[in-house]
Amino acid sequence: MATGGRRGAAAAPLLVAVAALLLGAAGHLYPGEVCPGMDIRNNLTRLHELENCSVIEGHLQILLMFKTRPEDFRDLSFPKLIMITDYLLLFRVYGLESLKDLFPNLTVIRGSRLFFNYALVIFEMVHLKELGLYNLMNITRGSVRIEKNNELCYLATIDWSRILDSVEDNYIVLNKDDNEECGDICPGTAKGKTNCPATVINGQFVERCWTHSHCQKVCPTICKSHGCTAEGLCCHSECLGNCSQPDDPTKCVACRNFYLDGRCVETCPPPYYHFQDWRCVNFSFCQDLHHKCKNSRRQGCHQYVIHNNKCIPECPSGYTMNSSNLLCTPCLGPCPKVCHLLEGEKTIDSVTSAQELRGCTVINGSLIINIRGGNNLAAELEANLGLIEEISGYLKIRRSYALVSLSFFRKLRLIRGETLEIGNYSFYALDNQNLRQLWDWSKHNLTITQGKLFFHYNPKLCLSEIHKMEEVSGTKGRQERNDIALKTNGDQASCENELLKFSYIRTSFDKI
């Protein structure tokens, strides 16, 4: 039985969820670079991206490699990797027998973001014989899940209580170790020597080791999670996991709180800001991140802002960003909400898709409305799209047979046209069989910064309504002859009103 693990408890099935942008060198404390989270699957090609990484700022997932063999891993080693800020997950990587050479110096898994409450997941690794993470000293947050690894031993010899604050939620089941077939031998045991430290858990006094050649490092209890030197002297209180010299914040392997210019500090002093819960960055760093993602459509890219001495992905609820200094300031009234469309555009074809934009005031991208039916549609669209004030790209209304009016965009005031449909149009209306009105132009103002209007096959939309939009939106004169079809717009509506004058002759039985 794995020490510190839980057996036999019912657990939810383990679901495996399925960018080499360097964020800056980590400095003297770390020998390499800070790398983003990685999802490495199918083959070993991307694994080489770990070569210079000291910190993975995010998670590391290595999974679904069915053609790899043990010899493929023999020359692979990433000794610079010290810390993973989120979680480490391995799933069905064939041929991998140990992690001792792959990650010989991995010391800390912070667990800032977890995989279903777990910071370390080893699942269905069919050839893994031992973990071998002999320098792993601290899992700051989260638990361990090690399950269905039929060859995995050296679990009962690990004292997880020396690595985690609590072992109650560890789930370590259905491994070879369960069948008591392992016969784990710690260093020196074969020669009758006791080389590794022994600890007591559940009444068992057991030597602690990761492999037959690597003991588990056990520091004096007084050192807590700070770690200790090879001689057993406690590291500085700002260290986490390990250090090369005692009581020196510049000799830590990793930091308990924050890293700044080669030393570990309790908090980031001005003019620095907390970033990702582990390091200090200056304003320029946060500003660069903001600008890199301002026009990016890459998933996970955030326009970072500053709030409460932190550089964070977005302002919290009730705050909006001051564009001059990136500071989050309290909103006066309802907060603006910028919604970034991942692929640059979004099609609204149902109430469900409209709900995804609920509360958005600025759309960074283009909207395509293609709704053919739905219950209580006008009210639903207004509830979900009615706060949109600005669209950076274009607005396209296409084959939306259920629409009679666009009044559900009740606050839309600006279409920038930074991206144009077919390279020309910022407003595009095609084949809307029941569209009769755009907006009530006596109450609604709309500016279209650039781009043209396109109207074709809107049989109940009168040309007068379209011409009014040209005047109000500032697009009059931009359109070419064929942009607004004269014969297919309003051709099934009563669009022309003329005053009919009647004269009559009164007659009676005795007068003409």
Rank of each mutant, 00 (worst) to 15 (best):
L332A: 15
E49C: 11
L60A: 01
W160L: 05
M137N: 11
G241V: 04
V265E: 04
R69A: 14
Y154I: 10
E168A: 09
S77A: 02
K310L: 08
D165K: 15
E124L: 02
S161T: 13
L88T: 00
H307P: 01
M137Q: 13
L233F: 08
C331S: 03
F66I: 15
L128C: 02
G203Q: 08
Q61P: 00
M65A: 13
G262L: 02
V144K: 01
R141S: 06
N150I: 12
A119V: 03
C182D: 11
G227S: 13
R279G: 14
C196F: 11
S98P: 00
L60M: 05
R263K: 09
V34P: 07
S296V: 07
V218S: 11
H307R: 03
H236G: 06
V55A: 04
F258Q: 12
L63H: 10
L50T: 02
R74F: 06
L106N: 02
C219R: 04
C186P: 14
A254T: 03
H226K: 07
W278E: 03
N295Y: 13
F275T: 03
K191G: 13
K251G: 15
E238N: 10
E151S: 05
D75C: 08
T194R: 08
P316S: 02
L102H: 00
T68Y: 15
G111P: 00
T194V: 09
Y87P: 03
D184G: 15
W210Y: 13
K100P: 02
L106P: 00
P79C: 02
N117M: 12
L136F: 04
Y319H: 09
C264K: 00
N138H: 10
Q299L: 06
G37T: 06
W160D: 01
R74T: 11
L88N: 01
G333S: 05
D288T: 04
N282D: 01
L133I: 11
E238V: 02
Q303T: 11
L44K: 07
P187H: 04
T211L: 13
I139L: 07
T211M: 03
F91I: 09
M321R: 08
K80V: 04
Q61I: 08
I185G: 14
I158C: 03
M137E: 08
R46L: 07
E314N: 15
N170Q: 05
G37L: 06
P249N: 13
V144E: 01
F116P: 01
D165A: 06
I201E: 12
S112M: 15
C35Y: 00
N135F: 02
I201S: 13
F283W: 06
E168T: 11
H48F: 07
L44T: 12
Q303F: 12
C215K: 08
N149H: 01
N295K: 14
V218N: 09
D184Y: 07
C53Y: 03
C315T: 03
L50G: 02
R141K: 09
V305D: 02
L102T: 03
G32F: 10
P70N: 03
V108T: 13
H307G: 02
N135L: 02
F116A: 11
P249D: 01
G37S: 07
L120T: 01
N195A: 11
C315V: 11
N43S: 07
W278K: 00
C286L: 03
C315E: 03
T68L: 09
N150R: 14
E49H: 06
S213N: 08
S284A: 12
I139K: 01
C215Q: 02
V200N: 14
L155M: 11
I185E: 03
L289S: 11
V200R: 11
S112D: 15
I109E: 00
P31S: 15
E147S: 13
H28V: 07
E168L: 09
R263N: 08
D169P: 13
L128P: 01
N43G: 11
D86L: 00
S54L: 04
R279V: 07
G241R: 08
C311T: 01
N105T: 03
S143R: 07
G142F: 01
G318W: 10
T320V: 09
C219L: 03
C255F: 00
M137L: 08
S54E: 07
Q276E: 14
V108D: 01
E181L: 01
D86S: 03
M83L: 12
L128A: 05
S143I: 03
T194P: 12
N149Y: 01
R41H: 01
H28Y: 11
R297C: 09
L174V: 15
M65Y: 08
R297K: 13
H236E: 06
K100L: 10
C186F: 09
A190G: 06
E71S: 11
G241S: 08
L64W: 01
D277F: 04
P36H: 03
V121R: 02
M83N: 00
P197C: 06
S161W: 04
T189M: 07
N150M: 06
N282R: 15
T211E: 15
C268E: 00
E238M: 06
I84P: 01
Q276V: 10
I109C: 00
E49K: 05
T68P: 07
N43P: 02
Q245F: 05
G333R: 04
S166H: 07
I62C: 01
N135Y: 02
P220W: 00
